[in-house]
Amino acid sequence: MFAPQFDYYRASSVAEAAALLEQHPDSKVLAGGHSLIPVLKLRLAAPSALIDIGRIDGIRGISEEAGRIVIGALTTHAEIAASATLQSGATALSEAAGMIGDPAVRNRGTIGGNVAHADPASDLPAVLRCLGAEFSIAGSSGTRTVDAADFFEGLMTTAVEEHEILTAISLPSGSSGQGSAYAKFSHPASRYAVIGAAASVTVADGVCSAASVALGGLVPAPVRAAAVEDALAGKALSAGAIADAARCVGDSLDDDEVLGDVYASAEYRSAVAHVWVGRALTAAAARCG
């Protein structure tokens, strides 16, 4: 199909983009276009104008600052997957980015667009929740920082307000003894996550000293699996311990919230989520250097 008519503006700075958003009611930010353009073509939205932020300098790329890794909002999935910094410091993120869609999607789609769109079936929200990311959001009145627990508010809603722009996402640099991984049950057609499990574990003196597990795909917004994390605390990460802990994932899922569709029902997703949690934990544990 064809998109409805809209006006097009190209911003050359974050400030200009913010100003354009305020000037044009019902306008939308355009980044890689890999979520927004399909929405327009299906005529599910009809914004008056698109504000293209794709060529703004300074909000793309990966750098390290004061113990944190900072990723510009315009960084593509392909760049994230290929980044040596992320491969070692936030393995689950580069791994998840490499599993998104197909090469065309990874070469155009951006991390900022992915999380701002906040599709429940996206991969990156669960990983960012797991790794304790912080989100920098700019508006005409300045920039604020929101952490992952508050950023993802619900089904396709985030803390980014109508006239704001997400500029960067930062993560703590990996520490010694820590490893992370992402395991994905991908939909055979869309490749989006039916279930996505992100895990980060730290091993000290042979036992788990810290664990963070988050799920996506089967819930409206990513959730932490506290029950799994608690079950791992102080344990040696044996196959049996991991499997037992993974089976606690149901305690962190609210039955009324779990999503289902024609491909995979909510009941099924809840029942098998532990398989992917177990896989993510197993891979993460193997990476604890």
Partner: peptide
């Protein structure tokens, strides 16, 4: 039709 796009119909 619930499988009317390439996102839903698995080739």
């Amino acid at each position: 039709l619930l499988t009317g796009t390439m996102l839903d119909y698995a080739l």
